[in-house]
Each structure stands twice: as C-alpha cells, then as structure tokens.
Design a protein around this nucleic acid. Structure first.
Length: 366
DNA sequence: GAGACGTGGGG
DNA sequence: TCCCCAAGTCT
C-alpha cells in the first residue's frame, strides 16, 4: 500500500487550492481553447512523451490538414508521415489513423466518451483514455502521466518505483477517490499535470516556494523533493556503428524507404549500412551495383541518440558519373543496396519524411 | 516485466 | 559534453 490513510486524508485537501491555482495560472494552449473530443485526442497523442513546445506547431498544422476523423481516416500514408515528421514515435500517427477508421466504422466517426471504450482504440492507453474522457466529456477518471506521478509521489513522500504499473494503478485509485465530478474532472487532471509542468519540476528544478500545495507536501516537509519520484535505473543503450551514403547524380540524391515495421518505420532515409565502411568497401558496394563513383568526400562523424539505441555515424558523399544516366537494371537486385529513389533535394523537403537521424548528412538548404 | 519506439531542450 | 527527461503505448 503506497499511500497510507493518513496521506490519503491530505490528498483530500488538494483539489480546492489546486483548482484555484489552475484557474489563475493555466497556460493558454491551442487544444484548450476549443476542447472538442477530436482536438483533445490529437493533442494527447502528440503530447505522449513529447513537450508542449514541440507539439505546438504540429498541432495547428495537423488540425488544418485533417480537421476531423473522416479526413484522418482517408488521409494517405505520405501525408500522414509528413505531418508527423520530426515528432518521433511514428507508430502514434499510424495508430491514429487505425483508430479513426474504427471510429468511422463503429462509432459514427466520433470518439466514445467512456474510458473502457476509448481504451480499446489503438494508441490509447490508460493515460490517454482518462485524459479524453475527463477533459472532453467531463467524466470522472484520472489521467496519470509522468507529471502526475511526480506530483503525487512528492505530496505523499512515497518512494515506490513510478515505472511500475502497480504504482501507477495505486495513484489512479487515490486520485479517483478525491477528484471532482463533471466539468471540473478535466480541470483537475490538467491542473495536476500543469503543476508538474510548471512548478513541481524534476530534481533540482522544483519551485516549491511557488507551489499552491507546499503546505500539504510530505516530501517538502521531509526534505525529499529532489529524490522523488524514485525510478529503477535505466539500462545503457546499445551503440551501433553505421555508414551513411550521400549519393549524388547531377542535381539529384538517392533515398530509400525504410521497412514498414520497426525503427522509423516507413520513413525515408539516406542509404546506410551497419559498421563503419572504408572507402574501399563502399566502392565495391557501389561497383557491384553498377554505379560508377566519380569523386569522394568523407563526411564528418556524427552521433545520433534514440531512446534505446545510439548511432555512431560516419558518412561518404559520392558523386556518381554523369554518364550514368540510367541505373543498371539489376541495381535493386543487389541485396546490399536498397531500391534507390533519385530525387531533387527540394522535393525531399516537400514530399518525403526523413527522420532527424539523417540531418547531419542531408545537403545544405539553400 | 522489460524492451521497442524519437526527438529536442535544459541543467 | 553528458545526462535527464517529456501530457505513454504496445508487445
């Protein structure tokens, strides 16, 4: 039992000062202006593991391009990925469309108000289902994200591992018993998150003197604020050496499309290979594919950090012979070289989604 | 339960 | 430079 009855009593004192603070200090955010179910849904998906500042431009653009579930359900893959390019966790946008198609088929194109029904939709887990049902529909259901976890673990001076599902469930239960009904349910959830985002910040960044709940906070009283929330240490990410090729032919460059599953699924990329390839190795690769290098330039090394992988990158810029107008018919039979698409750099920006992992080797903008 | 899944900002 | 982390979900 992570939260004693004594602490549960204190939690009961939270809603009033918290809501008062929220109504005075809440940020004006695009999705708060007109919190329709669709807008709340899209914003919540974008906000998963992603900062408000990063989401802002994506949200407006997305809402303009795909203003409702019908538009989302019928959007083509390229449009979808382009709208998400740079946001990361690309399965989110695929799930968004899967869910939209389900909504069209089963729910008259609308988000259902019930937590349980929302939970069945792809991409919607307990947090998001709680957020949509409370914010858009005024249903009394908690929405426990990283902010809320931090706030509650501190208020109750609880050192349970917040990465554990049982901890999250316990917090949901504690909140369910103290949160208000109706319209205020959504405000309460947002207020908790807002407090975590603006005041009850991680580690040394916490601004306890500004906190509307400072007098109710057990961690503050015990001097434990900086140590909470507790998390099991993260495992080191694995390092992968890769070699990126910037292949140029006249004004065009070569890109290929990543497989539909896994890391950066379906996004476009510069051709790249495991390991750090020597010039000789790249030469034999290209020669086997029937391509004729004319000039070479070694590009500076770069490091790209994903959540679970680290790419240790080197790159080669290879100018192909202009005389090679047509690619050899067998080039895409070469298992070493993926099917290449030769495109103008301006078209790349216009129509293809490229993960930021390749930014270091993309031709300069101008 | 643990690992896959991105990116960029801030201390 | 390095490390933490941000409105999580799926397998």
């Amino acid at each position: 039992m992570p939260i004693s009855s004594e602490k549960q009593k204190v939690l009961e004192k939270i809603p009033a000062p918290l809501l008062r603070w929220f109504h005075g200090q809440a940020r004006q955010l695009p999705w708060r202006e007109d919190p329709t179910p669709y807008r709340v849904w899209i914003s919540e998906i974008m906000l998963q593991q992603t900062r408000v500042a990063a989401v802002m431009p994506y949200f407006s653009r997305f809402m303009t391009a795909l203003p409702d579930t019908a538009a989302l359900a019928s959007a083509d893959e390229d449009t979808l990925l382009k709208l998400w390019e740079g946001l990361g966790y690309y399965s989110r946008v695929r799930n968004l469309q899967k869910a939209a198609r389900i909504l069209i088929r089963q729910y008259d194109g609308k988000l259902p108000p019930d937590f349980e029904a929302l939970l069945t939709l792809p991409g919607i887990g307990r947090y998001t289902a709680g957020a949509i049902s409370s914010i858009a529909y005024g249903q009394k259901h908690p929405a426990v994200d990283g902010n809320v976890l931090r706030v509650i673990m501190r208020l109750t001076d609880c050192a349970d591992d917040v990465l554990k599902d049982t901890t999250k469930r316990a917090v949901e239960n504690a909140l369910l018993s103290i949160m208000p009904e109706g319209r205020q349910a959504g405000a309460f959830n947002q207020a908790l998150m807002e407090l975590g985002a603006l005041i009850c910040l991680p580690r040394k960044s916490a601004s306890c003197p500004d906190c509307p709940l400072q007098d109710l906070c057990f961690a503050r009283a015990a001097g434990h604020v900086e140590q909470l929330p507790a998390k099991k240490p993260t495992k080191a990410r694995r390092v992968e050496k890769r070699t990126v090729l910037l292949l140029c032919r006249n004004t065009s460059i070569a890109i290929d499309q990543r497989p539909p599953q896994g890391l950066l699924a379906g996004l476009w990329e510069l051709p790249n290979y495991g390991g750090h390839l020597t010039k000789k190795a790249v030469l034999s690769l290209l020669t086997e594919a029937g391509l004729q290098p004319a000039s070479w330039k070694k590009l500076p090394p770069a490091r790209h950090i994903f959540s679970h992988i680290e790419w240790d990158l080197i790159g080669w810029r290879v100018e192909l012979r202009e005389s090679v107008r047509e690619l050899p018919a067998n080039y895409n039979q070469n298992p070493l070289l993926p099917p290449l698409h030769w495109i103008e750099p301006t078209d790349l920006k216009r129509a293809y989604s490229i993960p930021s992992a390749f930014q270091y080797y993309l031709p300069d903008e101008n």
